[in-house]
């Protein structure tokens, strides 16, 4: 499922850092659990999350089994030009998803 929620300030000032939040719906299956029949459930967590700001990589994370389902990532980015934040992530099952948010920089 590729739904996520992204939060960035409506407007930021050039040179200032601003907070970016992304909440991704993902089961984050740890790989340590067993089915009722005792068979292991394959690990399926978000393997990599990246955020690009006008094409420049500003944030990258490699979550693993210890991260809760539906993870929330919060980080700070320094405002440059107005443009777009592009989030991309891939999980162990190979499912890719992305989300975008636009950033408006006041002169």
């Amino acid at each position: 499922m590729a739904d996520a929620r992204v939060q960035v300030p409506a407007q930021v000032r050039r040179g200032e850092s601003f907070e970016v939040k992304i909440l991704i719906r993902h089961a984050m299956e740890t790989g340590y659990r067993l089915t009722d029949e005792g068979k292991p459930i394959a690990r399926n967590v978000i393997r990599e999350l990246t955020c690009r700001y006008n094409g420049v990589l500003v944030f990258r994370a490699e979550p693993s089994s210890g991260i809760a389902a539906n993870p929330l990532f919060t980080f700070f980015v320094t405002a440059g030009d107005s443009g777009e934040l592009v989030f991309e992530w891939v999980d162990d099952a190979g499912a890719r998803a992305s989300e975008r948010a636009s950033v408006t920089v006041a002169p």
């Binding site: 739904d3 929620r5 939060q7 939040k21 909440l23 719906r25 389902a69 539906n70 929330l72």
Partner: peptide, 10 residues
């Protein structure tokens, strides 16, 4: 925003 239940509300 951070309340994960909002994923369902949305």
């Amino acid at each position: 925003f951070a309340n994960p239940g909002m994923l369902w509300v949305e």
